[in-house]
Computed example of a mutant assay.
Amino acid sequence: MARTTPHQHVHTRRTLTDGEPLYRRVASELLGELRTGTVPPGERLPGERQLAGHFGVSRETVRQALEVLRREGLVATDRRGSHAALPGMPVEAPAAAGFPLGARQAGRDAVARAAVAWEVPPPGHAEPLGLAPGRPTLVHRYWSASPGVREQRTAVTSFSAVALAEVEELARYRDRADGTGAAELRRTYDWMRRAGLSLHHRDTITRVEGAPSVRVTRQVRDQHHRPLELTELVMDAQQDVLVYEFMVPAAV
């Protein structure tokens, strides 16, 4: 597809042949691309205009093709748009740690919430991200609790202007980041890698004075040393100070 495939495809305007409706043929080709992992399960498909240009058909034909896939449970549509809904994991397993820092694996008894807002970042976030004081940006908040609420984790992430300019999937959240709706940003680091960014993580772990908790501060930069995100995670635990750094290469 125009958004994700490495090579541009030139399509001529399709015509009806062999008695098969054109929209069904487009649905079949689109399904084939979804099965190869062009758009991983759960991620947003390109818009109707992009799909129409990709397949060389009208937007109405694309609309009909998507409806066929929706009826078969292979595509889901919500207020964010249409998403691949094929069963199974994405073809390319994530090479980076999950987002946000400290996010738990889904469990039957665990509780987690996440939301995004377009707002001024928390104190201490603007300068490392290269943001002017008082300038709003995309801020992600995460909260989780273990079974029985024995351990809680809260994480606040602020993204830089560079991240929003380079990573299309993040930029799309700006207009709907009202701080109330659920946010699914678990593939953030894969989106960054797919945008051609190599990720340099620097995590600093310190004790929270007067509390049985630790604070983990993560700063992420790209291969050009440009800031991408800053996350502060507070979790119920006790550990000594630890700083470690690692690189995640860009997707090729």
Rank of each mutant, 00 (worst) to 15 (best):
T12F: 09
P212S: 01
R172P: 09
R44C: 07
G102K: 04
H140Y: 08
V75A: 04
R104W: 15
A117P: 08
P128N: 01
L66S: 12
H140L: 13
E166W: 00
Q238L: 09
R176G: 11
H201C: 02
A65W: 05
H11M: 14
A76D: 12
Y142K: 07
T217N: 02
Y142V: 13
E43C: 05
A112T: 01
E168D: 15
A27S: 06
R104G: 09
R176C: 11
L51V: 03
D109P: 00
V120C: 06
R70L: 11
G210T: 01
M247W: 15
S160Q: 10
G47V: 13
G130Y: 03
R25M: 04
E168I: 05
A76H: 12
Y142L: 01
R108N: 03
V10H: 10
R80Q: 15
A95N: 00
A132M: 13
T188E: 03
A115Q: 06
E127S: 12
R70E: 15
E29P: 04
R25T: 14
T61L: 01
V116T: 14
E232I: 02
L86E: 03
T61I: 13
F55L: 05
H54I: 00
T204H: 11
E67R: 11
T5S: 06
A163K: 07
V91K: 06
H224G: 05
V120I: 14
D222H: 03
A76W: 00
A163I: 07
H7E: 07
L199W: 05
A165P: 01
F246Y: 15
A145P: 02
R221V: 15
T12H: 12
L45R: 00
A163T: 10
E127R: 11
R79W: 09
E92H: 04
M89Y: 04
D203Y: 04
F246T: 14
H7A: 06
A171N: 11
T137K: 11
E20C: 03
Q50W: 01
P90S: 05
E33L: 14
H54K: 00
E43P: 02
D109R: 08
Y23N: 10
E209V: 03
D203L: 08
A2N: 15
P121C: 13
A65N: 09
L66P: 08
A110L: 07
E29K: 02
G196H: 10
Q64K: 15
G130A: 08
L22V: 15
R113A: 13
E20R: 13
S158F: 10
S198P: 00
P212W: 01
D222I: 03
V111A: 05
A112F: 00
R193D: 03
V57C: 09
V243G: 01
P100T: 01
T188K: 09
E20A: 10
M192I: 02
V248L: 08
